[in-house]
Nucleic acid binder design. Structure first.
Lengths: 234, 234
DNA sequence: AATTTTTCCATTTTCCAAAATATTGACAGG
DNA sequence: CCTGTCAATATTTTGGAAAATGGAAAAATT
């Protein structure tokens, strides 16, 4: 067993497996934000030698999922309002660009994929109460993410799509927070209607969809920021 | 001696030094694009053991300056028109966002830095003929880059600025090509006037500067694309 | 002759122990 | 009582040797 929060991320070399497992753990919040990671704990946790671990860590540093200081190990970046705003700002700029490309280049398959993803999202509704519905919420999040991915998937820009994915992953780190306060987050927003309208505009290739997407993401940003503030994260 | 095209990049650990040296060599084109890198050549070249090399490579993979395939080593990504367009697209979206933030948050120091950078750029003019003026061109490029950096430097978004830097580095790889054809690139463009106008609009906090910057970068993109096409790069 | 299987070799990947560097706590001097 | 120095300890970093892997040549089978 390699990962503690993911069954078994496929990857040929050990270093890749550890990379995947460590990344999952960071995104899932299994490694508390702001904490320093001791090498020997990680060695124990991922059951490997120093080389694969070090390689995995170095790669995550390159992708900003970890912060490194010479001779002082690595830390999981801590949460902050500024950081959330930073990430969402980038995400909005990039997704808008990608969506603009997608509505130019998208074909029938793309439209089909969007409809399918939208449908799957509506079929896994966000539970009204967030009591012990952790699984349901997580399923919804997964489908929600794949809906957004489908929107921009037709953009012929691998780098752009990769960067967007990276930013989405960054926001993923705040998921625990989002889940804790999903009730408030929904206040004043009809999520389903919002997405359906977005979907319609996109498929109609209406340029207004760019603004709508930007607004949609900005609302999410505001919700997350509000949550951090209320959760009193340093 | 660690680096082959850079004197001695400061860095505490060996891995960091190798990282810097390898990155420099990639950006400077010392490692031909598209070529596979043999581990033992790199070991020889950077005069270090496998561990620091491996770590440096892993980090560069995370930043997309190298492509890795399991058990088949790493390659320097090859040049392509699509890639240039991809990178510039991202760069434009991000720099526009950053400049918008900068003209909101910029203070007097920021304005001063822009004026200084603009002045330095004008004092190191691009030579008319690109005969053996390699050094002069490279000095101009350095100052040109620092001018553009100064424009967005006031944006309070570390992630955004880092990403922009990364994209500029990516375009840096095509520098050899740009130099080879700098004559053509200048045709029909008054670079000095273009930059001065940009500078004036930015300092006046005129929102029109966003469009101008985007156009400016787009022209550069077109010039680079034309060069690649004429250089018949696969 | 074509196709599959086997063997060998170059290369990457991994482990491990030694070296380098930070951090902690104690202790002497101001 | 505070401050700075020095040793002891903990942690990270590095080099080299061993293991694993993929690809290509050689052998064997159809």
């Amino acid at each position: 067993m390699i990962s503690l929060s993911n069954p078994s991320p496929p990857g040929r070399t050990l270093a890749e497996q550890v990379y995947g497992a460590l990344k999952s753990d960071i995104l899932a919040g299994a490694l508390t934000a702001g904490s320093a990671l001791l090498t020997r704990d990680l060695l124990e946790r991922y059951h490997c030698g120093v080389s694969p671990l070090r390689e995995a860590v170095a790669r995550l540093v390159g992708e900003q999922f970890l912060e490194a200081t010479s001779h002082r190990g690595v830390r999981v970046p801590s949460f902050s309002v500024n950081d959330v705003e930073d990430v969402y700002r980038i995400r909005i700029a990039l997704e808008r660009e990608a969506l603009a490309l997608a509505i130019i280049h998208g074909d029938d398959n793309w439209e089909g994929a969007i409809l399918a993803a939208g449908h799957r999202m509506e079929k896994a509704p966000l539970p009204d109460r967030n009591e012990d519905q952790g699984h349901a919420v997580s399923e919804w999040e997964k489908r929600h993410r794949s809906f957004h991915t489908s929107l921009v998937s037709a953009a012929p820009s691998p780098r752009l799509l990769r960067l967007i994915n990276q930013m989405v992953d960054q926001t993923e780190r705040y998921r625990a927070l989002r889940l804790a306060g999903s009730d408030q987050a929904k206040i004043g927003r009809d999520i389903v209607a919002e997405h359906r309208r977005l979907m319609d505009l996109v498929i109609a290739r209406d340029p207004a969809c760019l603004e709508l997407l930007a607004d949609h993401l900005d609302h999410t940003r505001q919700a997350v920021v509000a949550l951090i503030r209320s959760a009193a994260i340093p």
